[in-house]
Amino acid sequence: MNQDARPLIRVVAGVVLNHDGDYLLSSRPEGKPYAGYWEFAGGKVEPLENEMDALKREFAEELGITIHRAVPWLTKIHAYEHAHVHLRFFRVAADDWSGRLQAKEGQQWSWQRAGDFTVSPMLPANDALLKALAVPTELFGRLNTGLRGENRMGEYRVVPFAQAEPHHENVWIDENELARRGKLPEAKSVWAVIDEAAQWPRVQDADVVLWRVADNTAAEAVCALLTEGVSLPLAVYADAALMRRFAERWRAAGVHALVLNDETAPV
């Protein structure tokens, strides 16, 4: 079959948090492909249904909870023999859902800590998503000496690749340097740093993309890219003035992390 003739199936999934910062995973029920495998709950978007309505319906049908608000996170497109699947993930904060969890389809569910998932087997496609959830949503510091934040496992630090030592798990590297190297450095998590949208297609192998935002033009470009949908976590590195003007817009559009360029921050 010609690839262009394959139907596009729209699917939504929700990354639901509780007040401890844990994420909700559920197992696939009997009778479905990969029965018993763990995933983020969700399902197909019905004809004439928007993505948010589909997310609300799926969570009500599968787990008996009500989704009040959600913000976009990652967009994945998978090409299968029979169809293209457009998968949109949403993040749902602890105060943005209500109700008592119920296994309405006979599945299991579990709250898991970011960076320390214990349920199995996991759908193979979720490996990158689970890794991304370990990245804090707020960090601070200076690129030349390092960035700091916290997740449920404790301190999270990103250091320049040129200064990295064997015990450093997370490193950042400039896209221009990455192009010269021709491959990602060895690390648990590699952050690629960009300054403009033109660099975005060249860093799709990174674990996180950090956009160094210096002015309003770049800040607006971030909004435009997020609106299109991003396939891997996008973090924004900006000073306090730009954060005040754009932080809420970036969050609403689906930015993964805000990184404050704080020249006075301890490192």
Rank of each mutant, 00 (worst) to 15 (best):
residue 159 V to P: 01
residue 124 P to H: 05
residue 113 R to L: 15
residue 231 S to F: 02
residue 119 V to H: 14
residue 171 V to G: 06
residue 227 T to N: 01
residue 140 F to P: 03
residue 240 A to I: 06
residue 59 F to C: 00
residue 13 A to D: 09
residue 265 A to G: 12
residue 17 L to P: 09
residue 112 Q to H: 13
residue 231 S to E: 10
residue 230 V to E: 08
residue 120 S to D: 06
residue 75 T to L: 12
residue 5 A to C: 08
residue 255 V to F: 01
residue 28 R to F: 02
residue 75 T to M: 01
residue 235 A to Q: 08
residue 37 Y to H: 14
residue 131 K to H: 00
residue 165 E to P: 02
residue 249 R to P: 12
residue 237 Y to N: 06
residue 215 D to T: 11
residue 76 K to T: 13
residue 43 G to V: 01
residue 245 R to W: 04
residue 29 P to Q: 15
residue 156 Y to N: 04
residue 91 R to F: 07
residue 12 V to W: 03
residue 43 G to E: 07
residue 175 E to C: 11
residue 8 L to M: 05
residue 185 P to Y: 07
residue 14 G to I: 04
residue 260 L to F: 07
residue 17 L to I: 00
residue 26 S to D: 09
residue 6 R to N: 05
residue 239 D to K: 05
residue 137 T to K: 03
residue 36 G to I: 04
residue 82 H to M: 00
residue 266 P to V: 01
residue 159 V to K: 07
residue 265 A to W: 03
residue 81 E to T: 07
residue 63 L to Q: 06
residue 199 Q to G: 06
residue 33 P to L: 02
residue 176 N to K: 15
residue 191 W to R: 06
residue 25 L to N: 12
residue 41 A to Y: 06
residue 87 L to T: 04
residue 87 L to P: 03
residue 154 G to A: 07
residue 89 F to C: 09
residue 22 D to R: 14
residue 166 P to T: 07
residue 137 T to H: 15
residue 62 E to K: 02
residue 227 T to M: 03
residue 143 L to A: 04
